[in-house]
Amino acid sequence: MAVQITHVRFGGTTRTESSIVMYRWVNPTNGKTGDNDKPSMVAFLEGKDGAAHVGAGTTRVPVGVVRPDSGAPYLRTYADGKWTNNLVNLPTF
């Protein structure tokens, strides 16, 4: 299943990918929506059929899991062969 991440929630005043604690998403195929915390979304993306993106059409950017040397894994967009920060620019909820 692939989902489009539409909104994020930060865990404090710092707005970085690693400080996002919740994700709101929609399944473009069936319209189902939901919210998941960071560990759940990391597990979803690392699962066999999990995939996520930000945007649609020509602005669609895939989301991947970053595993830093220290700290918890987090999500980040990956465009044109490099990690980008599209998630931080999404609306908050």
Score class of each variant (00 low, 15 high):
residue 1 M to E: 15
residue 1 M to C: 12
residue 4 Q to N: 13
residue 5 I to G: 03
residue 5 I to C: 05
residue 6 T to Q: 02
residue 7 H to G: 10
residue 8 V to A: 08
residue 9 R to D: 06
residue 10 F to I: 13
residue 11 G to H: 00
residue 11 G to V: 04
residue 12 G to W: 09
residue 13 T to C: 03
residue 14 T to Y: 14
residue 15 R to E: 11
residue 16 T to R: 15
residue 17 E to A: 02
residue 18 S to M: 13
residue 18 S to A: 12
residue 21 V to S: 03
residue 21 V to Y: 04
residue 21 V to T: 08
residue 25 W to P: 12
residue 25 W to Y: 14
residue 26 V to H: 11
residue 26 V to M: 15
residue 28 P to G: 08
residue 29 T to Y: 08
residue 29 T to E: 14
residue 30 N to P: 13
residue 34 G to M: 09
residue 35 D to Q: 10
residue 36 N to F: 14
residue 41 M to D: 00
residue 42 V to Q: 01
residue 44 F to K: 12
residue 45 L to Q: 11
residue 45 L to Y: 11
residue 45 L to D: 14
residue 47 G to K: 04
residue 47 G to V: 02
residue 48 K to S: 06
residue 50 G to K: 05
residue 51 A to S: 04
residue 51 A to I: 08
residue 52 A to L: 10
residue 55 G to S: 02
residue 58 T to E: 05
residue 59 T to D: 01
residue 60 R to S: 06
residue 61 V to I: 12
residue 61 V to G: 03
residue 63 V to I: 09
residue 65 V to F: 08
residue 65 V to E: 07
residue 65 V to P: 02
residue 65 V to L: 07
residue 66 V to E: 15
residue 67 R to I: 12
residue 68 P to V: 11
residue 70 S to E: 15
residue 72 A to Y: 09
residue 74 Y to P: 05
residue 76 R to K: 13
residue 76 R to L: 15
residue 77 T to V: 13
residue 77 T to E: 07
residue 78 Y to K: 07
residue 81 G to R: 09
residue 82 K to N: 10
residue 84 T to S: 01
residue 85 N to D: 12
residue 85 N to Y: 12
residue 89 N to V: 00
residue 91 P to A: 05
residue 92 T to C: 11
